[in-house]
Amino acid sequence: METIVFSLLNGIIYGLLLFMLSSGLTLIFSMMGVLNFAHASFYMLGAYFAYTVMGATNYWVALILAPIIVGVVGMGVERWGLRRVHANGHVAELLFTFGLAYLIDEIVKIVWGRTSVNYQVPDALNFPLFTIYNAQYSAYRIFILFVAIFMLCALWYLLKKTRAGLIIQAALTHPHMVGHLGHNVPAIFMGVFGAGCALAGLAGVIGGNYFITDPAMAVQMGPIVFVVVVVGGLGSLEGAFVAAMLIGLLQTFAISINASFADIFGFLGLSPTSEFGSITIASMAPMLPFLLLVLILIVRPTGLMGDREV
């Protein structure tokens, strides 16, 4: 019982954090077909901007301001970089963001130094909210939960219920038609890219002090974000949400399983001292998302809830 409660709670929080990170990427990916390799770098920028803004003002200002700055940077990247590369195809776009990730990493090191910065949870949220089974749950974890849910609702409302959302959705599938109807499609693209980056920035503000803020944080977060987006399916915010939750829960539940391969396949004669037999499910847990990615793409290339092939 204890294990299940813990795993559920942790899985949901981790899943929501993953969702915050990947929702922006899903937006960009589904709209422009660009797998933004630098997405995790924008997440990092969010954390660093928040650190700087927090130093000058306070956390709440940073929470609003940092994502906006990241969004503006993202719009600049789209306007003067990506748009130019667009003519050379998707591979070129992808490689552009690949190079951009390198660049942002290095610039962050020049500006903020090469080691981690002291970006801490604000005092107002730095207290244990409740305790279950001897483990404290800090208020900040619950705060993450609420911010993520708020973001999910806001995004959903914006995309499904407003006029701007309709245009974006239309531009997603039929950019030429939308252009003919008199909308400025390049501007929409720029806006969406900026918004996607801003969402990554928001995740950075939240995740930067929950985890650590250092120049390696982008590299560490990079791959898992792709997994969420691709498993969830292209063009599907719901899919990204489901995938993020699935991965969060899968991973945390797996950590609590101490069984080894020998315990499971022992009837086949696998010895617990052999190299393969001694591997436990728990130690494999962080690799499961990648296994899931490969399997899903082979079985169902549209992803869980996507409507077209990735």
Binding site: N10, L17, Q251, T252
Partner: peptide, 21 residues
Amino acid sequence: NELHPLAKVKDFTPYIQKIIS
């Protein structure tokens, strides 16, 4: 006696709760 993959874990809370338990 727990092992986890190198540099792949982001959220260690589940491990911590195993330790607490």
